[in-house]
């Protein structure tokens, strides 16, 4: 038996594989293919205080080894989530992490307060890094002071663990990481998507309705891995690593770079059982290499520089 358990900011996960926000819906969509109880956790689609219609289509473009998306935080709002979606998720034992987004600091604070009154939410993931909305998102994630302000507001309105999801679209991600750590963040999610675009040659215009979108998939993995490495060296908060994780090998690279857990996103679109395949692959790796505890591997690559 290998020990796959992970502890992040007091939150105990039975294994390190998390379904990433925005790629796994509210869990229901993947329940026919994945035993949700086998996952370390599910991070649900980003919620806002009020329902949001999202961006005009086209919202997705396929690029080499990746996809660009510009969904624009379409979601039914926190009240609908509480009334109609959370009861479904509560049938399962899997910890539910709720991703939250807002246009103002006050909105983040109000969302955190509302969600903290509900049962069976394991943690909040604060999205200050969505590249596809005009207000909120990057306006906070791109500026260390603003990022800290949002973090503090959320912390002051919840007793749940607060995970802050950072953007790679900054000059120094370590600086933002340190700012949110000082503001009281309990953990970090690294990374959100990388801002990009694609052009339709036939139409001679951008493919996405929003012009820009967030790049994800295997193409971003080296960038995400670098971000995890850098933040691990400078900030002592637990890290959830994400960005182009498609295989157990990818996941193990993130863990050795310093991530305690990993989130699987775009891979779900290509293989709906990607989370489980990656989990089993990690388990096999530990067994074959006679490693008793996954936690022994966290940041292992830093010791051998």
């Amino acid at each position: 038996m290998v020990d796959l358990t992970v502890e992040i900011a007091g939150l105990k996960l039975k294994n390190p594989v998390i379904a990433a926000s925005g790629t796994f819906g509210f869990g229901q969509e993947y329940a026919p293919y994945v035993d949700l109880n086998r996952l370390g956790a599910i991070t649900v689609k980003g919620l806002t205080l009020l329902p949001r219609p999202g961006n005009p289509p086209p919202r997705l473009a396929e690029t080499p080894a990746g996809i660009l998306n510009a969904i624009g935080l379409q979601n039914p709002g926190v009240d609908y989530f509480a009334a109609s979606i959370l009861p479904y998720l509560n049938q399962f034992e899997v910890p539910v992490i709720v991703n939250i987004a807002g246009e103002t600091v006050e909105e983040y604070a109000a969302l955190a307060a509302k969600l903290s009154e509900l049962n069976n939410i394991a943690a909040l993931e604060v999205n200050i890094s969505c590249p596809n909305v005009k207000k909120g998102g990057l306006q906070f994630g791109g500026d260390p002071a603003a990022a800290a302000e949002v973090t503090l507001a959320v912390k002051n309105n919840t007793c749940l663990p607060v995970i802050v999801k950072l953007s790679p679209n900054v000059t120094r991600i370590e600086t933002v990481a340190r700012a949110v750590a000082q503001a009281g963040a309990d953990a970090l999610s690294l990374i959100n998507t990388i801002l990009g675009m694609a052009i339709d040659l036939k139409e001679r215009r951008p493919i996405l309705g929003n012009i820009f979108g967030g790049l994800s998939g295997p193409a971003v993995k080296p960038v995400a891995l670098r971000a995890v490495w850098q933040v691990f060296e400078e900030v002592s908060l637990p890290i959830i690593g994400m960005g182009g994780i498609f295989t157990a090998q990818d996941a193990l690279e993130f863990i050795m770079a310093g991530a305690k857990a990993v989130a699987v996103g775009t891979a779900n679109f290509v293989n709906p059982r990607a989370t489980i395949d990656i989990l089993e692959g990690i388990e096999n790796y530990l067994r074959e290499n006679k490693i008793k505890r996954l936690s022994d591997l966290v940041g292992a690559a830093h010791c051998k520089q």
């Binding site: 925005g22 819906g25 969509e29 026919p32 293919y33 086209p58 997705l60 996809i67 998306n69 379409q74």
Partner: peptide, 14 residues
């Protein structure tokens, strides 16, 4: 429509 997940999770093909 161009799809992402095919199962209703990603909201790309709206």
């Amino acid at each position: 429509k161009q799809m992402g997940c095919g199962v209703g999770a990603c909201l790309s093909c709206v």
